[in-house]
Simulated assay, not measured.
Amino acid sequence: MVFFCVYAASCFVAVGKLFSTLFNTDYIYMMILGALFVVAYTFVGGFLAESASDFMQGIVMFLALTVVLIVGTIKAGGISAIIENARNIPGFLEFFGVAQPKVVDGVQQVTQAGTPLFGEAGNYGFLVIISTLSWGLGYFGMPQVLLKFMAIHNPNELKRSRRIATIWCAISLVAAVCIGIIGRVLYPDVFLTYSAAENIFILLSSKFFFPLLAGIIMAGILAATISSSDSYLLIAASAFSKNIYHGILKKDASDKQVLYMSRVMLIIIAVIAMLIALDEDSVIFTVVAFAWAGFGATFGPIMLFALFWKRVNRAGAVAGMVAGGATVFIWKLLIRPLGRYLDIYELLPAFIISCLAIVIVSLCTAPPSKEIQEEFEKVKNYM
């Protein structure tokens, strides 16, 4: 629930930036308006509405990304012109290099001609590479991703859904990066802070297309936002109402009472997320990175151990989740700021510590019951 609040906040920040940029209005009012819209249809529709809307929103996102990418490439003078411009940025296209913008008080400096200034290329060290690759570990613990696979009607469709998900990720991530590079080519002297730079898709859409079409394309941002935020709100609210309220606090609760509590928690979580999202200068990527690490380190290791190690038990699972989640906070807030060799994305050390906690505690406590081990073997043989 803690990390879902952070995740939902990143979505509300995106909504606020979208509408405040489009209509030149106050960010906070637009953020709250977008959040209320998401809460309203999630409140009424539940999981079925969320799943159906995710499918339609995914189509809008896909079309928006590909259309802006194609038109942007043409406007920028073709692929060769884009590559040449990127090559002129020191370190940008080097495999182990990284561009170093000249920044003063968080704002990149530009020449009188409007050309952004860069310093000498930096280098990606071994720790930075490992730290960045650790992003992939997060997928094992994402409830909003795993839940869709768990809810599938026919297990035989899992292979198809896996292929669709992989292809979608590849296309969307490549398109998003390329759109950022195109924006740098066409409008090098706008959005000179990390926070403002996330508005480049909005600018390109409004410049490339007439208003009606631009509105449809920019709906892709809204689609991406609400397709994520509704998942976060619904899963977190359901987890509390079923696992804590029904499972611990009121075991004799009726389905109607559980539904009522789920809706109450949905509103509470949304309010907390809106409070987190009040900062207009929030960088969406930074907010998402923290929540991604939290889910990946808390749930990822135990998901893997539950599938591939028969000896893991309840105590080990709890120890791994607590150790992983706590390490994310400790590493992010206390250890990583020390810099140098400790400046590693918090997901990597938290994931490792969670794995160690699962193994050590499981081996030091009683093994799972015979029924659980038999179920493990049954599932293993089925797979």
Score class of each variant (00 low, 15 high):
319 A>F: 07
89 I>Q: 01
131 S>M: 04
25 T>K: 03
105 D>R: 05
5 C>I: 12
163 R>D: 12
299 F>K: 04
167 I>V: 09
124 Y>A: 10
349 P>S: 08
373 Q>Y: 00
326 A>F: 08
160 R>C: 06
95 F>K: 11
378 K>R: 14
190 V>H: 07
260 Y>E: 11
218 M>L: 14
224 A>H: 02
289 A>H: 03
335 I>Q: 00
219 A>L: 07
111 T>E: 01
216 I>Q: 07
119 G>E: 02
335 I>K: 06
243 N>T: 07
34 G>F: 04
96 F>C: 10
329 F>A: 09
17 K>T: 01
186 L>A: 03
103 V>E: 10
138 G>L: 06
209 F>M: 08
226 I>R: 01
262 S>Y: 05
34 G>E: 03
247 G>N: 02
71 V>R: 09
369 S>W: 11
44 V>M: 14
372 I>Y: 11
102 K>T: 13
129 I>M: 11
156 N>H: 14
167 I>N: 02
150 M>E: 13
117 L>H: 01
77 G>H: 12
124 Y>M: 13
72 G>D: 08
28 I>K: 11
51 S>E: 15
333 L>A: 11
366 A>Q: 15
162 R>K: 12
230 D>H: 01
309 W>S: 12
154 N>M: 11
308 F>H: 10
10 S>V: 05
108 Q>K: 13
177 V>D: 13
233 L>M: 14
8 A>D: 09
254 S>Q: 09
126 F>R: 04
331 W>H: 00
212 L>R: 01
78 G>W: 04
306 A>P: 05
38 V>S: 07
17 K>L: 02
205 S>A: 13
70 I>F: 08
102 K>Q: 14
332 K>H: 15
98 V>P: 05
26 D>Q: 11
119 G>K: 09
59 I>P: 04
